[in-house]
């Protein structure tokens, strides 16, 4: 139980490192209007959605550990202290290794990012559930059916 709890609860440092990882998946937009995935709370979302699957959570932690070990080996510094270019290089190395992040990391990064308030606002949407307010739609233009109405019945009588 205690081992599982350790795996399931990520440290602040692990969250920061993961934020850098998922910023590679969705980086800030060039115009600065949209933040990267690491800046909108997606790591907390990922930690939460992976909680029922400790083996996947463990794979993420192993990937983060591998990043730190590589940072120490190659640059004698913590991963977070490296330049962006150096971080990208180490991420690339880990992605090719046995400690690669699980493919679902990309799915959850996409899912978490496009549920965040800031991103929904940027898309012109209200950050709320669809119910109970719903959405307003205009009246139907049924004059569009005029050419269809002019055509003969098309079912086979039998």
């Amino acid at each position: 139980m205690s081992d599982e709890t350790t795996l399931l609860t990520w440290s602040d440092e692990q969250h920061r490192a993961l934020a850098r990882v998922i910023d590679e998946i969705i980086p800030p937009s060039d115009d600065g209007r949209l933040p990267g995935a690491g800046a909108v709370g997606v790591t907390q979302y990922i930690e939460q959605v992976l909680r029922p699957t400790p083996e996947l959570s463990a794979m993420v932690v192993e990937g983060l550990t591998a990043l730190e070990e590589l940072a120490t080996q190659r640059h004698a510094q913590a991963f977070g202290a490296l330049s962006r270019a150096q971080q990208s290089e180490l991420l690339q190395a880990v992605s090719m290794s046995a400690q690669a992040f699980p493919p679902v990391l990309m799915i959850h990064t996409f899912a978490g990012y496009y549920q965040s308030d800031r991103i929904l606002h940027a898309l012109g949407l209200e950050p709320r559930p669809p119910h109970p307010k719903g959405y307003t739609m205009g009246p139907n233009d049924l004059t569009l059916l005029d050419p269809v109405r002019q055509r003969p019945a098309r079912y086979r009588a039998c």
């Binding site: 590679e24 998946i25 969705i26 980086p27 060039d30 990309m106 799915i107 990064t109 996409f110 899912a111 990012y113 496009y114 549920q115 991103i119 929904l120 898309l123 949407l125």
Partner: peptide, 20 residues
């Protein structure tokens, strides 16, 4: 919004990285 991202990913039309 989420389904757009996942559909885009599954059909190869939504990359990660700078072009996302």
């Amino acid at each position: 919004p989420v389904s757009t991202a996942l559909w885009g990913m599954s059909t190869g039309r939504l990359p990660s990285g700078t072009d996302h």
